[in-house]
Design a protein around this nucleic acid. Sequence first.
RNA 1: GGGCUUGUAGCUCAGUUGGUCAGAGCGCACCGCUGAUAACGGUGAGGUCACAGGUUCGAAUCCUGUCAGGCCCA
Length: 959
Amino acid sequence: MNLPETGFPMRAGLVTNEPASLERWAKAGLYEKLRRQRSDAPKFAFHDGPPYANGSIHLGHLTNKCLKDFVVRSQGLLGKDCPFVPGWDCHGLPIEHKVMGELIKSKKIKELEGLDAWERRARVRAECEQYARTYVELQSSQMVRLLTLADYAHPYLTIQPEFEKAVAEVLADLCARGLVYRALKPVHWSIANETALAEAELEYMDREDTSVFVDFEAADKEKVYDAFGISDADRPGQTPSFMIWTTTPWTLPANLALAVGAKFTYALARIDGNLTVVAEALLERVAKAAKAEDVHVLATTSGASLVGLKYRHPFLDTTPTGQECSDACWTVYDAEYVTLEDGTGLVHTAPGHGAEDYETGKRVGLPIYCPVLGNGVYDDSTPEWLRGQSIWKANDAITERLRHSGHLFHSEVFTHSYPHDWRSKTPVIFRCTEQWFVAIDGKYSIDGDEPRSLRERALWSVDASNPESVHFVPAWARNRLRGMLESRPDWCISRQRAWGLPIPAFHTEDGTAVMTPSLVRHMAEVFGVHGSDAWFTKSAAELLKGWDPASDADLPEALKGLDKATLRKGEDILDVWFESGATWNAVMRRRLGVFPVELYLEGSDQHRGWFQSSLACALGSVGVPPYKAVVTHGFMVDKDGQKLSKSRGDTIEALFTKYGSDVLRWWVASLSYENDAKVDDEFFNIAGEAYRKVRNTLRFMLGNLGDFDAAEMVDLKAIPGTSIDAWALEQFEELSRDVLAAYERYEFRVAHARLYAFCNDTLSAVYLAAIKDRLYCDPKDAPRRRRTQSVLHHVTDGLCRLLAPILPHTADEAYRALRRVPDEDVQASVHLEAALGATGVRADARWPRVMDMRDKALAAIEQARGPADKGGLGIDNPLDAGVSLPSSDGILDGFDPVDLADLLGVSLVSVSPGGAEVVVTDRRSEQRCERSWKRDGTVRPRSDGGLLSDRDAEALGLS
RNA sequence: GGGCUUGUAGCUCAGUUGGUCAGAGCGCACCGCUGAUAACGGUGAGGUCACAGGUUCGAAUCCUGUCAGGCCCA
């Protein structure tokens, strides 16, 4: 008897054995070795999007990191060279915020307060860098433990000088295209610290404010009456007003427009004598608030018919454009954000003091007017009675003024939740500041092509009718990206922080910003050599050594003679999205020398993030999208499909030790990743079960190859097509084709399902069951046994390779077990292999029909198991049965009856050429071979006294 | 509130351009094997295809709306 024997254990012990594999791969230098080995192979350029270097890896990263590794390893399997440089996003507010918090907590902040602004920033940056590097280390080790294959020895970090240089290069390109401009934009502003604040730096606290209902007199009363359809005879002589409600009276000096909702209904009403326009639905509440007694509606009309009407400002005579409401200012517009929640349904709009107001202002062409200085007082553009006054005090002054001039309908004090500066705990305001923008609609031309804007180029690059368009998986991702591109406003790329890449702009003494392409290119070189810290430690003159204003063609004539020493460094840093948007340049184009890249693969949130920022940067810089294909995956949700709570569940380390990476990866491979995936412990357990099944199939095959040497391999393509070995081999080659095709299309779920089904159905249930008899009982060297082992070896080898992208540890373990590689030999690895090629074997074309007959026969055998009164024969063990198979039109001609019997698990099969039905017979009266347990009709006592069949007697050398 | 997206057996999912199936795996139940054994094999039960309308000779598959989720905005 040749029973299975293998060192490949049934129990995986992933918790200890995976780290051993990692160590082995590290010793062998697997990543570098693979690169060398594939140096002449076609390249597959795959680019890692940088996760943020903050915190530990969690479930959300699991899909992303596994899917990426599936790509890397499956491309290797397909014979490609797929270098993969992992990256981290290291700059940005979350880290700076965290670091500042720690500095405050540890009182170290006090040490910094005495320093000058640049020194202080440099110190904070040093802390931030340390913080980021700590998390890069942590995450990197976790990703390694997840068995992902990447150049972890040489990651890209957005804080590396060469990376910073590459980002600045892209910025220089955009400048050269004329896409970068400076303009006003409202931001959260802390008056106490005179600085812009980000969302994360706000604390919402209750605050008491005065809210006012203000009447804005119509500029042309007749037009208002027209809008309400009031006939000439019915028109009152009085001039009607538009009533607004605001909680920030101090922004009224900056009022430039009113907004209404086009689809709402507005009433022209007389409220205690006031003739005013208010949303119909809010009229009652407004009247009640002011305790008005006499309310009478004259007429109603839609918001749409109010659009375009003009009004007079309650206390200003001229707009900031110097005109008297003949321009775009002081007009009623339609805006989507108008609601009937509260107020009057007419919204006071000050583009310099609100985000939505700003958008409206941009849309209809209003100036972005902000009469408030950084320290919170009005500037000289305001009326004398406001000039130099603090806005908080002005609230009262303005309210009083309105009251006296009869514009104040009502005012009341009330408490609401209001944003405060997290450090000074003082209320924050919206204030316009100068920011850097990338123009989305500015046309430019590259290499003399037709001038088109970033938006046009981006839309075209994702347009399905463009033959060179980006490929999207899943297909709807195209629409999602397009929708966002269509509506996105200009990109604000500046931030008022320290932890980031400085925007290399300088300012002349009169405040003019200087940032020419060649100046930025010069600074790119400086960053490349000294890192961006140089911006904080060196003077403008030092930084600009080597840049000659006189020969800078883009510098206005007036500035050509400027003295570099008089320039002041800009204090803005770049939006981190700009940095990650330029990774293709730093990592792929400059470092690896490939552009554009084959594939970007990220979560669906990156439609707004990385996919878009990368596209904008590349189109502006090179004119070509950075990626040829984009794959997106969904998010992790809990068991019930709800958003995953941050505090939930296990740490990633706990998952490693509880299940092992191969099990986690097997689970990820099973996901339809384009949708959201539910996570739960139970699912990992299920994945573990499936993993064990695959493992056991491998183990059984390895066991039966324990005495087989690859040198004994028979010529596979010479195997007769009617043999079950040819069938199995062909099944494997079909599997291989399907799995490789699925890998090529990033359909890991399909590959996963095919592999699992092949192990269970094709192998475990059919082929392995059928060949057991010959493997166990044929003489060791019998041609039939060696032939089967040859196929088994080939299939095992091939299967390991196909599994390798998903189960890197287990596949390698099995691959090495198959070759009996000693532990100390670290070189052999399945991950260096490509998939097996086709052998050219041709299984008989009748096999599908033979398998159909097998199904029928199995059903008949199942039937025969039942007791006699249920039409059965009472046969429990299939080996107690014999089967006669019908072979109409010669379907079974040339097939070996022993193969057929093994395929059915019965003792004997006879072929009946004229038969029509499968006939099962009871063979329990026949002798049973002690060795093979078959009752094949040749069993008789042998010379040693045992009851054996002919085959088994021969195997034992008995007669 | 808007853009994109999901809702098919207890669970995870397949179901191409509307008309042979309402399918697979897991789980569950029952049975076999005991020379893959903390394994292996076989059989079976389970669904008004989220809900409500509509188009059609006919819809899980097309349209509209509702409900419940997800991502990103507002």
